[in-house]
Amino acid sequence: MFAYTVRRLIMLIPVLIGMSILVFSIIHLIPGDPAKTLLGEKASPEVLEKMREDLGLNDPLLVQYKNYMVNLLQGDLGTSIKTKRSISEEIKPYLAATVELTFFAMLFAVIVGVNAGIIAAWKQNSWFDYIAMLIALIGVSMPVFWLGLMEQYIFAQKLQWLPSIGRDSILNPINSITNFYIIDTVIQGDFDGLKQILKHLILPSIALGTIPMAIIARMTRSSMLEVMKADYIRTARAKGVAQFFLVYKHALKNAFIPVLTVVGLQTGLLLGGAVLTETIFAWPGVGKYLYDAISVRDYPVIQSGILMIATIFVIINLIVDLLYSAIDPRIRYQ
């Protein structure tokens, strides 16, 4: 298991290099001149040329790539063309905001989705099953921006239970150390702050978690239905195992592999930044950061962002693969 993990980590290197080449080429094939974007359409050719020279855009692609990789390996993602700040520094709070939101969205999706799927399978063809699957169907088909707006309208505007936008209260901002507000408030013992942070997380988490929740619920249900027919479930029943343990112990562990796959993929997707949700809830996350960078052709930022998202995907896939073998002993890696 340990050797397998190490080998998988080493195998990540060529994957990441390949990814960096791909990302680098795509970005440079997109039409549009960053110098022009920065200086405006009316800038004189001399100024534009100077700008391109400063940005290294006149170097051959290979040289540009080499410079990029050398910096990357030193943990330097480059400098934003727009803000002139170091990207690795700049991206941290955005990344933290996205990770925090993703964590709670997936927590909601997994807890609700898995349990709804289990109970729907357990009570197949009951009213619970029908309603849960109807909600799941609505959940996957509903546009996330509409759900977000409805949440804000009902819970923020009408009922005034929850804040509608942002990560923290404007009047009482969090004193951030780690960029992860939950951790910040806990280590500083600021429990009022923590309460505020959690309140801010509820609506965007539900909006963002609804689609994964619906997919997970449907996947869990079908997987459970399959497993509940298995011979070993009949054996367990013949031993006198109660229905609850039959479902939550004997069946669930077997049914969990396809569910885990979906959870991994969805987590990766959400970590890549959910532009729509982040925009509606004014959530300062990676999605919004990248969206802004794309609109001004901030190449270094776009490159770093895409590379980071791709890396996160690869790592999550690795974690999912390792979890497979922890759940099912038949999946043993040589």
Partner: peptide, 12 residues
């Protein structure tokens, strides 16, 4: 049961 290959839970 008839099927010893599938009658035991594979993950325990």
């Amino acid at each position: 049961f008839q099927e010893p290959m599938t009658s035991l839970n594979p993950v325990f």
